[in-house]
């Protein structure tokens, strides 16, 4: 009896090779070091989240992995294929949903899908069936023959994702897929993304600057800051890496920031103290019992407190710890 390589063999082979592997990627644009030795490995069939503020290097990493840009140094494989040596083979294996839509507004939803399908070498009946299937799945069938410019933001994003899936790629890149979507469209998109890895065994690289999104979707994630990975692991691992609770104090007066930091340092057991703008933070083993000492210390130092909260570790804390600044602050800074 001849032995055919069955699904089990294929599965074990694919789990041996990472869906995406980047090794020491560096890229400089003029004065800006966009990537500074970024390395990641994405397990097949999972969502991997690349988290960081705008300008951290996420999009540059995606551009290199999707063959749109070449790194100055480093190497990468996608679906086991060398990105630099065989870009065309990589392009056949991937689906890409970039930040800027990529939908042709004059063409209908159906035509947009069919163009990408044809470019991938799909033909007649196959393309028709697959287009209908995706339109149905993303609830676009009703609007399939209307020009895409008449679509709402949420519908265009769905069409974008459908276009990334038409040729049944092995690896899907989603670059900030929910930016600009309203909360309802966002949660729909999250459901859809979860389904993709579940039922279809797709590997997904997701970039986002929404901590909540990464927490919700990613099996593993990496925090990017200034072109390099500063922390990586499952969301739980990353949160567990932080001992104790966070105490966040909102100050009534911005002038007192430095004074607040000094006062917090004097509190026994307080560590990882940061202060910027109106906010001072510290980490303690047990938040509730340390709070009185924190407030007393601040009062003694003459700092007016607007509010004080105790929080279990969140990804925001992880980000703060590894990137050395609060996520929101870093985000504002990069955007400004």
């Amino acid at each position: 009896m001849s032995v055919q390589p069955g699904p089990a063999t294929a599965l074990s082979m694919s789990s041996a090779t990472p869906a995406i592997e980047a090794v020491e990627l560096s890229k400089r644009y003029g004065e800006v070091q966009a990537l500074d030795g970024l390395s990641i490995a994405v397990a097949p069939g999972t969502v991997f989240g690349l988290l960081g503020p705008n300008g951290a290097g996420k999009s540059t990493a995606v551009k290199i992995l999707t063959t749109l840009a070449r790194p100055d140094s480093g190497s990468a494989t996608v679906a086991g294929i060398d990105v630099l040596r065989r870009p065309d083979a990589v392009r056949r294996a991937i689906g890409v949903v970039t930040q800027r839509s990529g939908v042709d507004p004059v063409a209908t939803g159906r035509e947009n899908l069919q163009l990408i399908g044809r470019i991938h070498g799909m033909r007649g009946g196959e393309i028709k069936a697959r287009t209908a299937e995706l339109l149905d799945r993303f609830e676009l069938t009703e609007h399939a023959d209307r020009p895409a410019r008449t679509y709402s933001g949420g519908m265009q994003r769905k069409l974008d994702v459908a276009m990334g899936l038409i040729h049944r790629p092995q690896v899907l890149f989603l670059d900030e897929p929910t930016t600009g979507l309203d909360p309802e469209a966002r949660s729909q998109m999250w459901q859809e993304i979860s389904r993709l890895t579940g039922a279809e065994g797709l590997s997904i690289l997701l970039t986002t600057h929404y901590l909540e999104e990464a927490d919700q979707l990613a099996a593993e994630l990496a925090i990017v800051d200034r072109g390099r990975i500063v922390a990586a692991g499952t969301p739980e691992q990353l949160k567990a890496g932080l001992r104790g609770d966070a105490i966040v104090v909102e100050l009534a007066d911005e002038v007192a920031t430095a004074k607040a930091a000094t006062a917090l340092r004097a509190v026994p057991g307080a560590r990882e103290i940061t202060a910027d703008g109106h906010t001072a933070r510290a980490r303690v083993d047990a938040g509730a019992s340390a709070l009185p000492a924190v407030l007393a210390g601040l009062e003694q130092a003459g700092v007016l407190v607007a509010s004080a909260t105790v929080a279990r570790p969140s990804l925001d804390d992880v980000y703060l710890r590894h990137a050395g600044r609060a996520f929101a602050a870093a985000h504002e800074q990069e955007v400004a």
């Binding site: 999707t66 063959t67 890409v96 970039t98 800027r100 990529g102 042709d104 470019i119 991938h120 276009m163």
Partner: peptide, 14 residues
């Protein structure tokens, strides 16, 4: 380029 269609095409085997 502005609409992202260019990147979409360049990351495909066109």
């Amino acid at each position: 380029m502005e609409r992202g269609v260019m990147d979409r095409l360049l990351s495909s085997p066109v």
